[in-house]
Amino acid sequence: MKTSSTVLVAILAAALGAWGYSILTPAKVAPVEHAADKKPEKPNDHVEQDEHGADRIRISDVKLAAAGIALAEAESVTLNDTLAFNGVLRANQEAVVQVTPRFPGVAKSIQKRIGDKVGKDDLLATIESNQSLTVYELKAPIAGTIIERQISLGEYVSEQKPAFVVADLSTIWVDLSIYRQDLRRVRLNDEVLIDPDDGRGEIKGAISYIAPVGSSETQTALARVVLPNTDGRLRPGLFATARLVLGKRNVAVAVRTGAIQMLENKTVVFVREDDDKIEARPVELGDSDSKFVENRAGLAAGERYVAENSFVVKAEMGKGDADHD
């Protein structure tokens, strides 16, 4: 009996000890994968290399459009050897007419204002003569646009001052300032490319007049180009730049000047590959003008490349390269 009690006590003590050990001993915790230890997945625009070692970045058409990046095709162009000049747009003075009252009097009505287009013989104003007290009409002598008005309702007017100035703006003068050292290179009928700086490209024209005398103040001489202006694109008073074409040369492959970038000490053009990649293609350049650069090696005619805002792609490729490292 005593032996049985002793065994029972031993069993109870062992059970209690095991239960206490389980409480004091910490449970095993599964290892936690820290964010720092986890390898990041490669983003869609990470930098990779093609079989020739050129850097490429994956970038969608949507992202290109959002960044204002424009693509163009490498193509054959004509490079122009040019000489640059500054100029100003003026109304064709051979098609500008001052409209002056015939008799002094008072303006009884005014029908037109600055900017209005008029036809020949359109009524501009009516004036009551001081001499006869009769009302006579002031009409447009030509079709054109009112560019000046120096008459107000009820105002005294006379033949001493024009009431209106009407200009036919269907043609515009571009007056260029030519420095003395360049005068020997400018000839009548020479081709000139006029840029009104309105984002719509250059207009081709020709030298129609060279002034026989120069300006003592600016030490320049005037050369003039007459341009058609039926769409009203050219506005008198605004500045323009001009390029006198001295020579031309055709090249097989050329890209726009804004496409050229330097990357890792290499001259590159960003070329569209597989519709979702941009490759930094090393190129060899040749002659150039203000718009295009000849490509002698690295790019074939017909390949699409980043023509505008190429610096955005360069920055994006730099970011992708840093992530890749």
Rank of each mutant, 00 (worst) to 15 (best):
S177C: 05
L188S: 12
K139P: 02
W173I: 03
P101A: 09
R180C: 02
L133M: 01
Y179A: 10
A167F: 13
G115F: 09
S216N: 03
K204L: 10
A211I: 05
S215W: 00
R187S: 12
K117D: 07
R200W: 01
L183K: 00
D198N: 07
A140P: 00
K204H: 09
A221E: 10
S132W: 00
D168K: 08
G201F: 15
K112W: 14
G105P: 01
I146R: 06
L169A: 07
V192F: 12
A223L: 07
Q98C: 05
T171M: 10
E155A: 01
L153A: 01
T100P: 14
R184Q: 08
T145Q: 13
D122F: 11
Q98M: 12
D190M: 07
V99Q: 13
F103Q: 10
Q160D: 15
G144N: 11
V165A: 09
S158W: 05
I146Q: 02
V157L: 08
V213F: 15
T126A: 14
P162C: 12
D198E: 08
V96I: 10
E191P: 08
S215D: 02
V118E: 00
E217N: 05
G144F: 11
V106Q: 03
Q219L: 12
V157T: 09
L193D: 15
I146C: 03
S129I: 01
D116Q: 00
L138A: 13
D182T: 10
R180F: 05
A140H: 05
G119D: 13
F103M: 06
D168G: 07
I146G: 02
L193E: 15
E159F: 11
Q131G: 03
A163N: 09
P196T: 01
